[in-house]
Every structure is written in structure tokens, then in C-alpha cells.
């Protein structure tokens, strides 16, 4: 095995993962708005059209419901479609197909029809795209039985999750955070197998657990560095798969530290953070040294101006303050 390390961006990771999948299996094809000639709205599929041709890199009309539904039909028909939805807000136009068909068909048909469909969705705020391009609905989708939800937060996961998703016989939604696209990291030249069943501890710690996923992971890691300087040792758990949740890893870190801060870019009410908090109370109540803290997006549609957008989103400062507070360092928040 080659252990050569190379540097690449999250965007390049996504691109490589997709390209490898298309090269490996002629049954795999990509479709979505502007994935072909334009090269993908976030340039993830640039040059794919030339390599794979218009049959396998399909530009679709602006018809989310039809092309997601067609992805479901194609998957039922034995193809291996990867559907790209430009941004999470647009996925709402295909919600009927995702929930009423993709997620329900296997059970509703008594186990006859599984839907091996991968849907990639750009998610998250931070680019001043305002209230119709910036939301985080992955927590919502994680509410639904019958689909798997992935949230790559590292370059390695961005690159490897496509291959892992294609091994699933069920619908898989991959939420790619748009603020991570330019993030760079060192990865092995030959992509290792990425396991999508487990959460991952990204940083070991003793005093408290920062539990997060997707675009909030870099914030949690930065906060952990700062906390370290104040003598607080924070463990950072990256959930990676939002459905099904890796309960065991969540419980393990809480058993270890007894304190938890959940950072979730979704809105707080009825969120993924609520679910995680509830599970911790159900399963680890006796080891908790303090109430669980949640840091979520403020409950407003994401505003356009930078200062308001920043104020709406979970911040490193909030995480640090919450950590210090939990450790009795008397911070006003």
C-alpha cells in the first residue's frame, strides 16, 4: 500500500471520489442541474462531461421533483444514479419524491423494491447567500426512516463517502457543506476505505465533549485548541452519519467526560441537537456532571449581511465560552 501523502481540498476530494466511482462502475451516472457543461455549480464535476460523456453526466432541467424521481426510477431499474441537488433549499422541491418514494418504497412494497440512490446536496451558510440558499436541513432529513444521512466534515470523508454510499442498497443523502469546499488537508494518495457506520473522535480530551458534524467541525476543533490554552481538555466527536446515529460513540465520549456541548448548524427547536441531547439523558443521565449545552443557529431565516449571518451561526467564541462555563470558569454568555 502506498503511504504517499498529498494535499487536496474538500472540493477536490469530492471530485476525486465521484470520478473514481464513475470510472469504476459503468452503471454509475451523475445527473443534476449544471453538472455537465457548467462543471457543477461548485465545480465538483468539472471536466467530467469530456471524460464520461453526456449519457453519464447529465445536465437536467430545473425540475428537482422530476430528476430526483427519475433517479429513484433509474435506481429501481438497475442503474446506479448519483443525483446532485445544487443547494439544500432546492431539495425541498423534491421532498415528496425523497420521502414518499425513496424512503418508503422498500417497506411499503414489503421488501421488494429497494432504492439504491445517492443524492448529493450542498448545505450550510457562510457565503452571504441569504435565506433561500443557506439553510441546514440535514437534521430534518435525519428524522426520516428509510434513508441514510451522511455529512462529510473532512477532506478524507469528502473523498471516500461516495464510494461507501454506493455500497448501500438504500437511498443515501450526502450533505456537503459549502464552507468546507476550499478547506485543504493532507490525505493518503490512495483513498482508504471510509466506514460510514461510525462517528469519529477527531481530538481526544478529558473534560468535556464537543459533539458536532459537517461545517461545524472546524469550529469545534478551533474552539478545542483555545480551550486547551485555558486548561480545558475538550474531546471532539464528528458524527459523520446523522442517520442512523452512532449511539455507542456518543455515549462513549459522554461516559468519558461527563459533559457535552452539541454544535449543530440547524435551528435548535426540534433539531438533531435535541435528539442527541435526549439520547444522552436517556442513556447516560447518571454520569452527567452538568446539563447538556446546545449551540445552534439562531432561529431566523439566514440573513444576507455578513455581520448578521455570522451572528446567526454557531461561532467558535460561543463554543469556547460554553466550554469554559461548563468547567466553572465563570464566563458571561
Amino acid at each position: 500500500m502506498s503511504t504517499e501523502k498529498i494535499r487536496m481540498t474538500y472540493r477536490e476530494g469530492l471530485r476525486q471520489g465521484l470520478r473514481d466511482a464513475l470510472r469504476k462502475d459503468a452503471n454509475v451516472f451523475l445527473m443534476g442541474e449544471d453538472v455537465g457543461r457548467y462543471g457543477g455549480s461548485y465545480a465538483v464535476s468539472r471536466e467530467f462531461l469530456a471524460e464520461f460523456g453526456p449519457d453519464r453526466v447529465r445536465d437536467t432541467p430545473l425540475s428537482e421533483s422530476a430528476f430526483v424521481g427519475a433517479g429513484i426510477g433509474a435506481a429501481l431499474g438497475g442503474a446506479r444514479p448519483i443525483v446532485e441537488i445544487m443547494t439544500v433549499n432546492f431539495s425541498l422541491l423534491a421532498l415528496d419524491q425523497i420521502i414518499n418514494n425513496a424512503a418508503s418504497l422498500l417497506h411499503m412494497s414489503g421488501g421488494q423494491f429497494n432504492v439504491p440512490l445517492v443524492i448529493r446536496i450542498g448545505t450550510g451558510a457562510g457565503r452571504q447567500l441569504a435565506a433561500q440558499h443557506s439553510h441546514s436541513f440535514e437534521g430534518w432529513y435525519a428524522h426520516i426512516p428509510g434513508i441514510r444521512i451522511l455529512a462529510p466534515a473532512t477532506v478524507e470523508d469528502a473523498r471516500g463517502m461516495i464510494a461507501a454510499a454506493l455500497l448501500e442498497p438504500n437511498p443515501v443523502l450526502i450533505f456537503e457543506h459549502v464552507m468546507l469546499l476550499s478547506m485543504e488537508a493532507e490525505v493518503e494518495e490512495r483513498p482508504p476505505h471510509v466506514d460510514i457506520d461510525f462517528a469519529k473522535v477527531r481530538r481526544e480530551g478529558e473534560d468535556l465533549s464537543l459533539i458536532t458534524y459537517g461545517g461545524s467541525l472546524p469550529k469545534a476543533l478551533e474552539a478545542a485548541e483555545i480551550l486547551e490554552k485555558s486548561g480545558v481538555s475538550a474531546e471532539v466527536l464528528d458524527l459523520r452519519t446523522l442517520r442512523p446515529l452512532d449511539d455507542a460513540s456518543i455515549q462513549k465520549t459522554i461516559q468519558k467526560t461527563g459533559r457535552g456541548v452539541i454544535i449543530d448548524e440547524g435551528w435548535r427547536s426540534g433539531s438533531l441537537s435535541s435528539e442527541i441531547s435526549a439520547r444522552i439523558s436517556e442513556q447516560a443521565f447518571s454520569v452527567l456532571k452538568a446539563p447538556i449545552v446546545r449551540i445552534c443557529t439562531k432561529e431566523v431565516p439566514i440573513p444576507y449581511p455578513r455581520h448578521l449571518e455570522e451572528a446567526a451561526l454557531p461561532s467558535v467564541k460561543e463554543i469556547v465560552d460554553a466550554g469554559l462555563n461548563l468547567m466553572g470558569k465563570n464566563v458571561r454568555i
Binding site: 421533483s65 422530476a66 430528476f67 430526483v68 424521481g69 427519475a70 433517479g71 429513484i72 426510477g73 433509474a74 435506481a75 429501481l76 431499474g77 438497475g78 442503474a79 444514479p81 415528496d96 419524491q97 414518499n100 418514494n101 418504497l105 411499503m108 412494497s109 414489503g110 421488494q112 423494491f113
Partner: peptide, 29 residues
Amino acid sequence: HLFHKPSRFYGGSAIVGGGLPIATGLALA
């Protein structure tokens, strides 16, 4: 929601119009 794989009978959709893109996708495959 009647489904029957041996007959390639794909249901059985109770969301009006919901089967249309599925049929389109089956045709695409």
C-alpha cells in the same frame, strides 16, 4: 400500494403524479 416485482409492477403511488418521474427514471435506466 400494490407492488409485485415478478410482474415489474411498481405500484401503487398515492401521491397524485408521484409515479410519473419514477416511470421516467425506469425508462432512463
